[in-house]
Design a protein around this nucleic acid. Structure first.
Length: 932
RNA sequence: GGGCGGUUAGCUCAGUUGGUUAGAGCGUCUCGCUUACACCGAGAAGGCCGCAGGUUCGAGUCCUGCACUGCCCACCA
């Protein structure tokens, strides 16, 4: 590995080559591999599971957003001395992958059905081997600090074994059952899907009213009962008409029968709460095989279930003359025939929520079929408690309520899928009807002894296996050392879109299967978790991130063509700049509108850092060749524990105001950044670092020390050493957000001989209270004020930029005067003035003057200030001042305010009033002088 | 039908428990290639914080209503 020598750093930052080199280095050196810890491990532990992307996926901005946040958190923990484990992997994604391969087959003119199951599955594996690693490859380019040695695939043998184990145990506990039930069926995917996989879409539809002749009407007048339906074709399978028992209109029809039109079948009129008098006609057709409500009613009344459709939603023999017709063709035909028979009596516009398959968009058909289900209530109860009790915390908090509401109203989970790609259900059917659920294929039937056992053809819902990952990736069902140390995971970071799909399932499974689990006590206490905390939960904290949208806040989608390819953005601006963009916009609970102009700005930030580094190296070579960062920050070895070693800026000596100031600012920033990361305020962390690095370190500190660096002798050496120390610490502070550029410069600072293999293994800066100085900060604020005032005057006087001008100063008190005198060189340099004298009296009347409550500064220049413009400016300023005075007076004369406001607030306003009074007077006198 | 969020500078967004004169980036305008950086520096302009009430000594921040706008959940034919 070659590191560029400092003097070879190119003038502008070129991320491409640098990032690729480090990404490879981190992997080759296995820097982020976390082997199973030996006995006696006492370091705090941080475990995080990467939400596995689908094998079919390719990296999109959402992945990068999620991974950036995770990587920041992970690197931050690692640098703070946590034994950090971040496990990557991919999901076999049942339907998605099967569809992908089916499409590929179609281009070859082949069909899944013709190939047969075995060959098809083998083909999917081939596909997986060829393309499945793509997204992980892309992740590697992002530099995600995952443990690649632990990479998994949800259909790996060990994970599959765990899936079978879970299935069998749940079955044995009576929590898995097989039943004929009405489920959501996708006619295109030819499989059952869960409630969650159905997306409801509001569409303008119709509500048709059909009248059914009542049999045995007294007299010769035929009586009808009218029902309304949005799916008229299902009437072919009606097996009853329901009315409400309280509905007076139909009292006389209880117990009677109607003749089902078109089918000429007699069906009963029943009374059931299914029919609500307020809705429509109050009478409802009952089709137990094609509607979940009707299905329930059917069970209550022991009605016949007539299944009208096959797996493709084509009418079957039960539909009589309509057999062989597609459901929608049948609908039109039924309507026409009903109309012809004078049974269709109404047609109304009606908006309905149409259920569509999440995967392919086909309208879902409620279908009667035999499926495997999980009896969810017992699992959900525990999952509710885990969050209610705070065993698991959720950020942002509003998702807690959403989670709880869902979990409390949960329905049994249909886990079987009629697919070929996935974990096959470990159940074997015997010709005698017996079903044997077992971990391995049984040799013979337990009931009849027959040897002709066939494994169930269904596979499990993909989320069944991914719901187990928090413990199966750590070796469950074996009682492993990994589980003992790394379970529960510390954190789960994921999107709100899979809150129910995945997160909820992990919590249910984790709490159930890890019941009684205890994390290693030493590790647990080192990690900061009290002994009382329950360890069965899959993770202790959840952070839900939002969606990445395009610059116009539109959802990114392939069909809209507004998808931003992260690799393309990276190519143009660098990974660090892209990461920074995402981090800076990642306010909890808010979607990110990804705007390239921001990334452009953060590329400039990277360039700024780069050039600050060049500046540093230049000075080191000139002033103190061979100088390396000193102090404890450079002595951090792999996996240190947090402690004093990481406090403040090691090796920094304060001899001047700017030293004390910058040190204070750095520590305050470190403090704020740590706080922000603790609560997932990524944007705040990023912005704090940005402001410090650019606005304080570069804009002020570097400028201020230039004069010292340019002197001969000891002062320059100290300034140089400080610069190096501070820069090194700042790099560590920035590293989690911008891992590449910080790694590059950090290594360069050590001239290729760094104290540890990576800055990622150095200590994260912690604030040192002793290095925070309010006095330095307020003194510096005065200086900055003064310098800006002078620059301002120069601009207004249109002083030639190169021309140095003298200035006259008035300081309201001696300490300010001393401050200015001590920093005369700095002021002269930064404000481009040449010499200044002090006046004993206020200068506020003089025309080219700026005033604050503490000082007046007058620039001596032959050109006159533009009086009209200056008056305009003063007028505005005065207005502001007076507004301030009025509102302040109002408060200070308000008894309620004086009585109730905290003392410091009152004090602040008093002081402000004094300053405003001075400012007002100064402004007025000047305006008078100018004749405004 | 329920629930949740958003509305702050031309644009994209910050603004933790209510507390001085509401911030940033981009864009705009004026200067400047001052030997780290033009992916830069200096300066400036730009805001009835969606509307209307209320609570409070004090509201961008809390409450109510309204408007617009997203999102999630839902078996009402």
């Amino acid at each position: 590995m070659l590191f560029p020598m400092p003097h070879e750093l190119p003038k502008s930052y070129e991320p491409g080559a640098i990032e690729k080199r480090w990404a490879e280095y981190w992997i080759e050196e296995k820097l982020f591999s976390t082997p199973t810890p030996a006995e006696g491990e006492t370091r705090p532990v941080f475990t995080l599971l990467l939400p596995p992307p689908n094998v079919t996926g390719s990296l999109h901005m959402g992945h990068m957003f999620e991974q950036t946040q995770m990587d920041i958190i992970v690197r931050w923990h690692r640098m703070r001395g946590f034994l950090t484990l971040w496990i990557p992997g991919t999901d076999h994604a049942g339907i998605a992958t099967q569809l992908m391969v089916e499409r590929q087959l179609a281009t070859e003119g082949k069909k899944r059905a013709e190939m047969g199951r075995e060959k098809f599955v083998e083909r999917v594996w081939e596909w997986k081997r060829e393309y499945g690693g793509r997204i992980l490859g892309q992740m590697k380019r992002l530099g995600a600090s995952v443990d690649w040695d632990r990479e998994y695939f949800t259909m790996d043998e060990n994970l599959s074994r765990a899936v079978r184990e879970v299935f069998v145990r749940l079955y044995e506990e009576g929590l898995i059952y097989r039943a004929k039930y009405i489920v959501n069926w996708c006619p295109r995917c030819e499989t059952a899907i869960s409630d969650l996989e159905v997306k409801h879409e509001e569409v303008a539809g119709k509500l048709w009213e059909i009248r059914y002749p009542v049999i045995g009407t007294p007299g010769n007048k035929q009586e009808f009962i009218t029902v309304a339906t949005t799916r008229p074709e299902t009437m072919l399978g009606d097996t009853a008409i329901a009315v409400n028992v309280k509905d007076e209109r139909y009292k006389h029809l209880h117990g009677k029968k109607v003749l089902l039109p078109l089918m000429n079948r007699e069906i009963p009129i029943i009374t059931d709460e299914l029919a609500q008098p307020e809705f429509g006609t109050g009478a409802v057709k009952v089709t137990p095989a094609h509607d979940p409500n009707d299905f329930q009613a059917g069970l209550r009344h022991n009605l016949l279930q007539i299944d009208l459709m096959d797996e493709h939603a084509v009418m079957n023999a039960n539909a009589g003359p309509y057999a062989g017709l597609d459901r929608y063709v049948a609908r039109r035909r039924v309507l026409a025939d009903l109309a012809a028979g004078n049974f269709l009596v109404g047609e109304k516009e009606h908006t309905l929520a149409l259920g569509k398959c999440d995967r392919c968009g086909t309208v879902v058909e409620p279908r009667l079929s035999t499926q495997w289900f999980i009896k969810i209530k017992p699992l959900a109860d525990r999952a509710v408690k885990a969050v209610e009790s705070g065993e698991i915390t959720i950020v942002p908090e509003n998702y807690r309520t959403i989670y709880l509401n869902w979990m409390r109203n949960i329905h049994d989970w249909c886990i079987s899928r009629q697919l070929w790609w996935g974990h096959r259900i470990p159940a074997w059917h015997c010709a005698c009807g017996e079903i044997i659920v077992a971990r391995e294929a049984p040799a013979k039937c337990a009931k009849c002894g027959g040897g002709e056992l066939k494994q169930d053809t269904d596979v499990l819902d993909t989320w069944f296996s991914s719901g187990l990952l928090p413990f199966t990736t750590l070796g469950w069902p074996e009682k492993t050392r990994d589980l003992e140390v790394f379970y529960p995971n510390a954190l789960m970071i994921t999107g709100f879109d899979i809150l129910f799909f995945w997160l909820a399932r992990m919590i249910m499974f984790g709490c159930h299967f890890m019941q009684g689990h205890e994390q290693n006590a030493a590790v647990k206490s080192a990690s900061g978790d009290s002994a009382a905390k329950n360890d069965s939960v899959p993770f202790r904290h959840v952070y839900i991130h939002m969606l990445v949208r395009d610059a116009d806040r539109q959802k990114m989608s392939k069909t809209k063509g507004n998808v931003v390819d992260p690799l393309d953005v990276i190519q143009r601006f660098g990974t660090d700049a892209t990461r920074f963009t995402l981090a800076a916009m990642a306010a909890p609970g808010t979607d990110v509108a990804f705007n390239e102009s921001r990334t452009e700005g953060y590329r400039a930030f990277a360039n700024k850092i780069w050039n600050a580094a060049r500046f540093m190296f230049m000075n080191v070579e000139r002033v103190a060749p061979g100088l390396r960062p000193r102090g404890t920050g450079s002595e951090i070895r792999r996996y240190t524990s947090t402690g004093d070693a990481s406090k403040g800026v090691p090796g920094f000596t304060t001899s001047t105001l700017e030293d004390r100031w910058v040190l204070s600012r750095f520590n305050r920033t470190a403090n704020d950044v740590n706080d922000a990361l603790q609560t997932f305020r990524f944007h705040e962390a990023a912005n704090k670092i940005y402001d410090f690095f650019w606005g304080e370190f570069c804009d002020w500190y570097l400028e201020l020390i230039k004069s010292r660096l340019n002197t001969e002798g000891e002062a320059a050496k100290i300034a140089c050493a400080n610069l190096v120390s501070l820069f090194e610490a700042a790099l560590r502070l920035l590293h989690p957000v911008m891992p590449f550029i910080t790694e590059e410069i950090w290594h360069a600072m050590y001239d290729g001989k760094p104290p540890s293999q990576s800055i990622a293994l150095a200590a994260y800066p912690q604030a040192d209270e002793a290095q925070i100085s309010l006095a330095a900060e307020s003194d510096m604020a005065i200086l900055q004020d003064l310098i800006v005032s002078i620059r301002n005057l120069r601009a207004e006087l249109k002083v030639e930029p190169k021309e140095k001008v003298p200035a006259q100063l008035f300081a309201a008190d001696s300490s300010v005067r001393a401050l200015m005198q001590e920093n005369q060189t700095a002021i002269e340099r930064l404000a481009n003035v040449e010499g200044f004298q002090f006046s004993e009296a206020s200068l506020s009347k003089l025309p080219s003057t700026r005033s604050t409550a503490r000082f007046d500064v007058h620039v001596i220049y032959e050109k006159k200030i533009d009086a009209a413009a200056e008056c305009e400016r003063l007028k505005k300023e005065l207005e502001k001042i007076e507004n301030g005075i009025v509102s302040g007076q109002k408060q200070l004369t308000n008894q309620g305010f004086l009585a109730k406001a905290p003392a410091n607030v009152v004090e602040n306003i008093r002081r402000q009033q004094q300053e405003l009074a001075i400012l007002k007077e100064k402004a007025l006198s000047k305006m008078k002088e100018l004749g405004c």
